[in-house]
Write a protein that binds this DNA or RNA. Structure first.
Lengths: 243, 243
DNA sequence: ACCGTCGATTGGTCAGACCATCAGGCAACT
DNA sequence: AGTTGCCTGATGGTCTGACCAATCGACGGT
């Protein structure tokens, strides 16, 4: 009986929470555009009638939520929501629970094939152009035989671009999360030339299916690709664990 | 040529960021268990050799990330990771972009049927017992004809329980996110008796499929259910927009 | 045994100071 | 004239210490 359905939803809101919400609303209503620079902390604090400490707590929460970027000596800026570099509040979870990598990979397998299918239905010419550029860049790295951080970045970019082609912004964000977290894991070991070539081939097949508007094939190919990636990553993680 | 492969990846870390990571690690290594109470801010600040301000910024970020709960006058506690009430850094996004509800519903449709399928493969006796209890509670509300916040909570709890039966903790978290955000949206309008009865019937069908270990049927039924929910919610949102 | 009061504990907010970093202008050097 | 280097102001980062507000628990009265 600790909860009464009617009474007591009393939201005693911390000041910093209110500030957080208010700044979000301002961004939502277009009073603050992505890329805009916020007033300096001291000034903004005075405008809002709060102390700098409270304001700073709110700003840090917003940064963690990926809404703003804070640069010392530079200022605080509203972040591009659709941008590639997205944050990860969940990223912290991987520090908390390293055993979640397997679960994360499975969630990816549940999710991204559906995204690819929708991308095949909805991709515009611009989406396809972006994917083509990405694939071309991948091709250059493959030809040069250079796996590494550059390859990882392009790989991630490809998957996010597929999500973007699905024209579902939440999907873009979720894909950004997942790939960012997994990229962090994969950074520890370098993929072989062979792995890179195989992944590149899969990426080409996926793009082809999207380009030809074949959702089923896009979904199936993405599924196969991700299962291969899963097997590889889990092997490496296990090997690292033994090492 | 802005990137040199060797030099200059220098990561200059804010103190509050370091604190955030360190606390996460402590939780990950079991030095802090879920449910544990952290030392008081003043004490913890001294232990870490930082000021209370920096520590507070870190704690607030951790709260936003769902790692801890802060209660004025009570203390700061490590949160149950698998717990029901998880927060959402993404929740702020709905303030920023109200038009994302449709995208969110679609992501749910991509994701939860897969979760249900895996639940049908992996659910244990305890999982089923929890689902049974939840369905029974739903039945009581349906019999009493009481849609409202209580129903919404049980509805959400059902979907999260399905995710839990899939034995994928990341999936539990993602489902928690999505349902929490949507619950926030749905709170604005009350479901009809009829809607509740229909959803209840679907829930029963899903549980049946899970209970009989039939992944395909679980997936299909969940998909159908979520499409119905999507249609309903989008209608209501549109109506609200016009009102 | 129950309940209200009060005090200690703990988080919430504030104000002011100083440090670290960055951007841009200015001056000296080549 | 162009480049380099430094200086300065702006801005975020950190620290200190104080006081407010909510909570919890012990104490004493009923």
């Amino acid at each position: 009986m600790s909860e009464h359905p009617l009474l007591a939803p009393i939201e005693r809101s911390r000041l910093s929470k209110q500030i957080t919400v208010q700044l979000c609303r301002m961004i939502g209503q277009g009073q603050l555009q992505p890329g805009d620079r916020l007033p300096p902390e001291r000034e903004l604090a005075e405008l809002l009638g709060v102390s700098r400490s409270s304001l700073r707590e709110a700003l840090h929460v917003l940064e963690m939520a990926g809404i703003v970027t804070i640069r010392q000596g530079g200022g605080t800026f509203v972040r591009e929501l659709a941008g590639d570099g997205l944050l990860s509040p969940l990223l912290l979870m991987l520090d908390v629970r390293g055993d979640l990598v397997g679960d994360l990979l499975e969630v990816r397998i549940m999710f991204e094939p559906e995204t690819a299918a929708r991308a095949a239905q909805r991709a515009t010419a611009e989406d396809l152009a972006e994917l083509e550029r990405n694939i071309a860049a991948q091709g250059r790295l493959v030809a040069a035989g250079q796996p590494g951080d550059g390859w990882l970045a392009l790989d991630r970019q490809f998957h996010v671009a597929i999500a973007r082609a699905s024209h579902n912004e939440v999907a873009v964000r979720v894909t950004g999360f997942i790939t960012e977290m997994l990229q962090d894991v994969q950074r520890h070991f370098v993929a072989s030339d062979e792995r890179m070539q195989h992944a590149f081939a899969r990426h080409q097949q996926i793009l082809l299916a999207v380009n030809e508007s074949e959702p089923q094939r896009a979904r199936a190919t993405m599924l196969e690709h991700l299962r291969e990636v899963e097997r590889f990553v889990l092997c490496e993680v296990a090997a690292e664990g033994r090492g």
